[in-house]
Design a protein around this nucleic acid. Structure first.
Lengths: 207, 207
DNA sequence: CCGGGATGCAAGTAGTCACTTACTTACACA
DNA sequence: TGTGTAAGTAAGTGACTACTTGCATCCCGG
């Protein structure tokens, strides 16, 4: 069965051309399949693309954040990097989806799944920092989470078009955002400030 | 001359349906004009929409940031609110543009004009804060600017779809982001509130 | 060897798309 | 009154769109 190849091809074409630009012919060509096969397998273009979107959101694995924070800077940085890479790899499809959701609201569920998940996890982590006294007491975890995720999201979406607006170099951006956020919520800077890489070892111990 | 009405209508239709969805018939109807008039005036649909985009970016006035900072929290909050309102009012067209730029790179210039401008101004302001000693010395203005703008951007783009992910209430969000950013760059909190720098406990004590 | 499900090919349908041609109306100005 | 300009009407072009029908082909299990 070529189902999965078709779904992958549909997602790919959609990422390049959006819904209206994803003609059945283009999808069929991309999948190396006859156009009629699409209709036999999925019934209509709309059903095909809907299924392709849902099929995408499975199989996404984000780096987990530990339940109990040990080394906030390295842990948060690792998470931010993973989140940023996830967004960057999918930037085309995210842009297209954000644009189409207004005309096709049924896409919003699969579109918002990953960011919701990420937001929840980040909130929990920041709350833990607060509870343990590692962070200050006068900040709102949800606002802080929205801020870090928003920075990463905007960077992943906008850097292609305006590289000069975002921090350089690109692969330290996630680290810089994370550090700034920790400053904002009153997390002491651990030891030395300018060693991003070496001291980042702990990933997670036990959930 | 109905030129301006046509341009406005084109921008409106584009915001709703994107490029491919902006049929000349729809634009003509929205403008209350015969379809042929579009072609006589602008030559082609592509030229029409290009001109409509450029026509939009004129006539945007963002709240200015003072050259010399006096009251960072209120100044930055006012600016953030204005920026956020600007983005929110144009969220549809921004989403559509972000999505189309990949297929039509010539749109990127008019698309990136406003955020570039805003980024410059914010950077200057943050640099002034640093220079005057109001802020700390160990932060990068560009990163901080990207962070605040990114937070506001993501909020303006995402709140419709996932209201529970962003801080409540909506009309204080800009203020909350601004305050968090000022904390991040070490701007003292004017009045009372806990001091961010020295009085924090060192991380990690096991309870 | 046979039957059935998945696939392909050829052809076609009804609709929409951007854009054109040829002609007409309304009005401003000299 | 004549002329030019902006607008409208009517009709159509060829290309593309999603989707259908009918029939041939392939492969795989019993």
């Amino acid at each position: 069965m070529k189902r999965d190849e078709i779904l992958a091809a549909a997602a790919c074409v959609f990422a390049q051309h959006g819904f209206r630009g994803s003609t059945t012919r283009r999808i069929a060509d991309a999948a190396g399949v006859n156009e009629i096969t699409l209709f036999r397998q999925f019934g209509s273009k709309e059903a095909l693309i809907r299924e392709a979107m849902q099929h995408m959101t499975q199989s996404v694995g984000l780096t987990a954040l530990p339940k109990v924070p040990l080394d906030p800077e390295s842990e948060l940085t690792a998470w931010s990097e993973s989140f940023m890479q996830h967004l960057r790899l999918r930037s085309s499809i995210i842009r297209k989806t954000m644009s189409e959701v207004e005309e096709r609201p049924e896409m919003s569920e699969s579109a918002s799944y990953v960011p919701r998940q990420a937001s929840n996890e980040l909130c929990l982590y920041l709350t833990a920092l607060k509870r343990e006294g590692t962070a200050g007491e006068d900040f709102d975890p949800k606002t802080a989470a929205a801020m870090l995720m928003g920075s990463i999201f905007a960077d992943a979406m906008g850097r292609d078009m305006m590289p000069d607006v975002y921090p350089q170099p690109q692969d330290e951006a996630a680290h810089m955002y994370s550090r700034l956020l920790l400053q904002a919520i009153g997390v002491e800077n651990g030891s030395r400030k300018t060693t991003p890489k070496n001291t980042r070892r702990t990933k997670q111990l036990s959930p």
